[in-house]
């Protein structure tokens, strides 16, 4: 049992890293990685929303979609749940913890179109995880996203000081850098 959970954690965090192996959440990965501080904020917001979204889509699927046989509504209902969840989290956070809202506020609206959240919800369906596994998987995936994003932001901060050929400036060099980072993550293959 514990071994199963450990496999899920290592698998979601390193072997099947959300960003670098599965290509989910590339937009925030490229978009907010130019500074380390924003990368940390984005990662925290993602971790928060991903865990809650994983649990609520699990509940929706098992208590609404499956009993009524309306699984074809999965895409529509999941995206609605995620979108309203993000709104809800933002409102609650504003009321309960203004400093936290100040730190994460700008990242929350961006998360609705972050395919990593939706992707994790769909992966949970695909793997047919139990509720406990769902929670572990969501948290581990978010940690994997955080590792990739922070490592990438650290590299890009150094990269900003380097002379880059004109044609490669901006997007292209960032993508090639991400490729090298993904190459490093391939070293984890076979770990779990």
């Amino acid at each position: 049992m514990t071994g199963d959970y450990l496999t899920i954690v290592i698998g979601a965090m390193l072997v099947n890293n959300l960003v670098l192996v599965q290509f989910l959440g590339i937009c925030p990965f490229l978009g907010v990685s130019s500074r380390l501080s924003t990368a940390v904020g984005m990662s925290a917001a993602v971790m928060f929303v991903m865990t809650i979204a994983g649990i609520s889509t699990y509940l929706i699927r098992h208590f609404l979609l499956l009993p009524f046989g309306i699984e074809f509504l999965q895409t529509v209902s999941f995206i609605l749940v995620i979108a309203s969840l993000v709104q809800l989290v933002e409102i609650v956070m504003k009321k309960v913890s203004p400093p936290l809202h100040q730190a994460l506020g700008v990242f929350l609206p961006l998360i609705t179109t972050n395919c990593a959240i939706m992707g994790v919800a769909l992966l949970i369906v695909q793997h047919e995880y139990s509720l406990g596994e769902t929670i572990i998987f969501a948290i581990a995936s978010a940690v994997g996203f955080t590792i990739a994003l922070i490592a990438f932001a650290g590299i890009r901060e150094r990269l900003a000081l380097m002379p880059v050929p004109k044609a490669m400036q901006g997007g292209p060099i960032a993508l090639v850098t991400a490729g090298l980072l993904a190459l490093a993550f391939m070293g984890f293959q076979g770990l779990a």
């Binding site: 044609a167 292209p172 960032a174 993508l175 090639v176 490729g179 993904a182 391939m186």
Partner: peptide, 22 residues
């Protein structure tokens, strides 16, 4: 083989964008 694996996707797209934009 690298190019059909994940790292190759990033690297190929990086160079493709650089080429097309130039």
């Amino acid at each position: 083989l690298l190019f059909i694996m994940p790292p190759g996707a990033f690297i190929a797209l990086g160079f493709l964008i650089a080429g097309v934009n130039t």
